[in-house]
């Protein structure tokens, strides 16, 4: 099953650029190399980052529902991007705004979480509070914006991997590699957390350092993805749970498999977004939500064994 996940992802990444509406003659090379290939690369990097961070946060917070969305990271990024859309000119400002917003929310949470006496529930609660506060401010800003700006903000908030191009891929790629490397380096510590922080600490895990490093890496990664692609919902939540369903319980392979499966998941979702309605493109966030939301409901309603 592990091999199957790897193969499906490889097939999706290699095959995705070939799928799409028939291309006008003369423009094939341009569409293929300048639009589809970078788009698939960005989707793969973003999906891998979101999924590996989702798996790591679920382990870190001892909570199956923890994702960057529940620790305030996504909301901070969204607020930063919104402020940029409303008050600053240019697409670059949106990315910088999202990145700064993600870090402004996440780093205090990470700094607090790194303190030895911080309890994991408090960190999660703080993240939820920040998420709600950022969401309220965002709504207020949208209400005061004019119609065109508000529409731009809504478009962005649905998530897309289409407008990023090689420039985005060149930034996202190295960040993705770094974030995944940090999480995989802490893979064994995250495994030990399965029986609680106290026991892991008694087994030699430096829990405060683990928390701080994974949270900072997660903030960087999510900040970058949100900045370039918008808040793509449910990937970080859904993919680790899908991996568990496919390979069985346990964390030994969870983190690297989540990265691989996440890349395949978002590339696949983006293909669906491009071809589902002919001639029009759905925001990829809509597709991931359409898959992720029922999955989440199913997980919550699943009978306990």
């Amino acid at each position: 099953m592990r091999l199957a996940i790897v193969l499906v992802t490889v097939a999706l990444v290699l095959g995705a650029p070939l799928i799409g509406p028939s291309m006008p003659s003369g423009a094939e090379a341009f569409i293929f190399w300048q639009l589809r290939v970078p788009r698939v690369l960005v989707a793969a990097a973003a999906g891998a980052v979101l999924s590996v961070i989702g798996a790591a946060f679920q382990a870190l917070f001892e909570n199956p529902l923890a994702t960057p969305s529940t620790t305030g990271t996504t909301a901070g990024a969204a607020l930063g991007a919104l402020i940029a859309i409303l008050f600053l000119p240019g697409q670059a400002a949106v990315m910088i705004g999202a990145f700064v917003g993600a870090l402004l929310v996440s780093l205090p949470v990470a700094a607090w979480a790194a303190r030895a006496e911080a309890r994991v529930q408090d960190v999660l609660l703080g993240g939820v509070a920040l998420t709600l506060a950022a969401g309220a401010i965002s709504s207020g800003l949208q209400m005061t914006a004019d119609a065109e700006e508000a529409l731009r903000a809504v478009r962005w908030s649905l998530g897309s991997v289409g407008q990023v191009g090689y420039a985005g891929a060149a930034v996202l790629g190295p960040i993705a590699v770094a974030v995944i490397a940090v999480v995989l380096a802490h893979s064994r510590g995250l495994q030990a957390l399965v029986a609680g922080e106290a026991r892991a600490a008694s087994q030699g895990v430096d829990v405060a350092a683990l928390r701080a490093q994974v949270l900072v890496a997660g903030s960087l990664g999510v900040g970058a993805v949100v900045a370039w692609c918008g808040p793509i919902a449910f990937v970080g939540l859904a993919v680790p749970h899908l991996v568990r369903k496919l390979v069985g319980p346990g964390r030994e392979d969870l983190f690297w498999l989540s990265a691989v499966a996440g890349a395949g998941f978002l590339v696949g979702a983006d293909v669906v977004a491009r071809v589902l309605i002919s001639g029009r493109e759905l925001p990829v966030g809509v597709v991931t939500s359409a898959i992720g939301a029922p999955l989440l409901v199913g997980l919550v309603l699943r009978p306990r064994r």
Binding site: R188, G189, A192, L193, V194, A195, A200, Q203, R251
Partner: peptide, 27 residues
């Protein structure tokens, strides 16, 4: 130097026994 057996075992998610025991090898 020091190992600990707490009063109860609270697991965040289902895990195979061998993986739980292997976590004791962290050091």
């Amino acid at each position: 130097a020091v190992g600990w057996l707490p009063q109860s075992l609270n697991l965040a998610e289902p895990v195979r026994a061998v993986e739980l025991v292997a976590a004791g090898r962290f050091r």
